[in-house]
Nucleic acid binder design. Structure first.
Lengths: 209, 209
DNA sequence: CGACGTTACTACAGCAATGTAGGAATTTCC
DNA sequence: GGAAATTCCTACATTGCTGTAGTAACGTCG
């Protein structure tokens, strides 16, 4: 099938693979967020970009490579920001630290909500499934590294090693919940208030671990 | 393409659509849980069942109808059990109620983990997307109905109406986290212990809402 | 045992997406 | 201005899945 029956469209600019690649990823991200990773077909990306499919193939070997590159780019962007957020949350008063942490985290999500949606609220496609898992694992790993010393220092949690996986699971999920609250009802809450609510609540929760 | 090049397989039993239908749903569920809803193709279901595709089409009008029926069946199973679990969690002592609630909930998940996985940790397929949303909404709705009176009666939470969506989000996520802990690391925790941990923690969290 | 209704199988047509080859337009460089 | 390189487009072959038509096996009832 031709891309356009008798194209009305202007011939696309002569950018070349190097300069085209980021545009392709942007179009793919928009599609993935709006309609799920399954909707990221070469054809759909090309259409969205006002370009024909071979142009996309010039940027990425095949569909799998495109998805992987997308997950990698967004994962790195998110991870870098989230790490900075975690590192910014230090201090002596647990509740204050938790609140700062959730606030910083929510600022990150508010800053690049699509990266978050891609990695945490869409389907892990058979294509970049490994990349998805990897990106999420890295996040969980960093969460663990932040959580463990906090829990030992402040509350001396018993049997921490055994509980830790479950606690990390809860922590990650609370972050997802906070992010969803922000992303799905953007009018109701500012990051500051929402961060305070979640920080206060989850601080209490972990103090009872 | 023929279903088998020159079928070695025995001819399948003469069951007829009525008796075949539940088998088809079982096969579809196994596929969806193992490889995502996207992997639920008519052909894959038929193969998994040792049957040819037209047999599946005799049970369900098309792929969409199959997915919808699957989500509906599993959603109802889960909902009925989860409702019973919530209703079993009543009393005067908040922490005890929370613990009973999470325990009962985890028992439900342990009882039909695949139903849970299908609805909450797989991709909402473009096919039954509405059914997915609906099933999840019903669960959230029931959570809200349980949470609201508890929060007013025990802790007289300020601005409850405004906070409630965020609190429900957190509550649902905590349930997902608990379920994941159970399903992904089935050796580490029994439902009783895990329910107590989560119940204690989340009770504290909500008391600080 | 023989005819009829039910069930499953084989084979086909259609569609949508993948990935590729060769030709046309544009830019660059002399 | 003209050749060469780059980039994009049209067109095709292939694959995988959907949904359907016609045929062969099975079971049941007279």
């Amino acid at each position: 099938m031709a891309d356009a029956v008798r194209s009305e469209r202007e011939r696309a600019a002569h950018l070349g693979p190097e300069r085209r690649r980021p545009q392709v990823l942007d179009a793919a991200l928009a599609l993935a967020v709006h309609s799920g990773v399954g909707a990221v077909t070469i054809g759909a990306v090309a259409d969205n970009l006002g370009v024909t499919r071979p142009v996309v193939y010039a940027c990425f070997r095949d569909r799998a490579a495109l998805i992987e590159a997308l997950v990698e780019r967004e994962g790195e962007r998110l991870l870098a920001n989230a790490l900075a957020a975690l590192h910014s949350a230090r201090g002596d008063d647990p509740e204050a630290v938790f609140v700062r942490g959730y606030r910083a985290f929510l600022d990150v999500v508010a800053d690049c909500p699509d990266a978050w949606r891609l990695l945490f609220s869409t389907a892990p496609d058979p294509a970049g499934a490994d990349k998805f898992r990897e990106a999420r694992l890295v996040m969980a790993d960093n969460a663990t590294r932040w959580l463990r010393p906090a829990l030992t220092a402040w509350w001396d949690v018993a049997e921490l090693d055994r509980k830790l996986p479950a606690l990390v699971e809860l922590f990650m999920s609370s972050c997802e919940a906070a992010a969803r609250s922000l992303v799905d009802h953007p009018d109701g809450w500012r990051t500051q208030e929402l961060g305070e609510l979640y920080g206060r609540m989850m601080c209490r929760a972990f103090s009872a671990a």
